[in-house]
Amino acid sequence: MFQANLTSVTMFFFLGFSHYPKVEISIFVLCLLMYLITLLGNMILISITILDSHLHTPMYFFLSNLSCLDIWYTSSAFPPMLINFVSGENTISFLGCAAQMYFSLAMGSTECMLLSMMAYDRYVAICNPLRYPIIINKRVCVQIAAGSWVTGCFTALVETVSLPFCGKNVINHFVCEILAFVKLACTDISLNEITIMLGNVIFLFVPLLLICISYIFILSTVLRINSAEGRKKAFSTCSAHIMVVSVFYGTILFMYMKPKSKDAAFDKLIALFYGVVTPMLNPIIYSLRNTEVHGAMRKFTARLFLEERMRILHF
């Protein structure tokens, strides 16, 4: 899977937070709770989006894809990490490590593209409301989502296969993270660093630029609305997306673009925040001030309660 000596190493060992044994239990408990909240929140959001016909719109279609991404990403990285915390082994197989890096890169790249497409969706909805059903129709949504997934997954495969490796098997991290893995290389990694940099430009800066351009046009259009109520309504349709973009890009840009730190523990905490806190916050952010989601959740809860009551009465 990786370049170089593939037969000498079958297992990798994580250093994790072993240098800080007093905080390992706290980190385990926090990660377990956040992982469970992430699964529950994103699964509920996907369920109500499917079950409630009022949420069968492009924005919630993209949001469902976003929730799927978050579930896939956290499930590929954090259950093995939690198991390692319990067992104390802190190991992962060669193929497991490759899979973790692949899913991390694939889901991250796809999420960047989806967030930019969601910004475009808001741009069309606010700046061209009369043409919105024509421009953002069901076929276009499926094509955009499929294109994002295929591009992200293919690019991640290329980056994973081309990673250098030559026999070292101790990773100073708690998961197989690409920036930690390249440090195992005992050969020149300048080409790989260029590849990672190009990936950052394509999947971080280009989508972020498109998001900024979309919101410049949105802001210009909203400021021309005469009524305060109209401006408030327009801003409210974008607020959740803006918060998600800020949390996601703020964390990932800080992680990938910050100067190299001598304190590996700090890098791990940043990766922990990006890996579990951000996916946990996404459904919460989209649910806080969204009346449509609130209404759908009330219907969903009432439906579950009614089904449970009928089941009890039946027995």
Rank of each mutant, 00 (worst) to 15 (best):
S287T: 04
P58W: 12
Y102I: 10
T110W: 01
Y20R: 09
A264S: 15
V277G: 06
T151Q: 09
A302H: 04
F205W: 13
C212N: 09
E307C: 14
V206W: 01
E193S: 05
A4S: 14
S8V: 04
M280K: 08
M255H: 14
S220E: 10
L66D: 08
E177L: 06
N5I: 07
S109C: 14
M257W: 11
V170T: 12
K22I: 12
T57Y: 02
E159D: 08
L32P: 11
E193M: 04
V150H: 04
R231Y: 04
S116M: 03
L304S: 09
V276C: 03
S148M: 01
T301M: 02
A302D: 15
G41T: 04
C112L: 07
F78M: 10
T160C: 07
T221M: 15
G275M: 06
T49L: 05
V9Q: 01
L45G: 00
M43N: 09
A4T: 07
N65F: 07
V247M: 13
T187W: 03
G96R: 01
F94T: 07
M34S: 14
C97N: 07
L209D: 08
Y274N: 12
S75I: 04
S239M: 13
A234T: 06
C186R: 06
V277D: 04
M43H: 05
V293M: 00
T110V: 03
L179C: 06
L63P: 00
E159L: 15
E89C: 06
R303Q: 13
S190Q: 03
T57C: 05
I196G: 07
F165V: 00
F154N: 03
L130Q: 14
H314G: 02
F203K: 00
I216S: 12
I27T: 00
K168E: 15
L69T: 14
F235A: 14
L69C: 11
F203Y: 12
I202C: 14
M101Y: 03
V244I: 11
F181T: 02
H294K: 10
V245H: 04
A125H: 07
T91P: 05
H314P: 04
N42H: 03
S239L: 15
M117C: 15
I37V: 07
Y215C: 03
S190W: 02
M11S: 13
P133H: 02
E307V: 06
C31Q: 11
P58L: 07
I218A: 05
L157M: 13
T195Q: 14
K232V: 02
A106H: 11
G167T: 05
Y249L: 14
Y35F: 08
T278H: 01
L208W: 02
R131V: 00
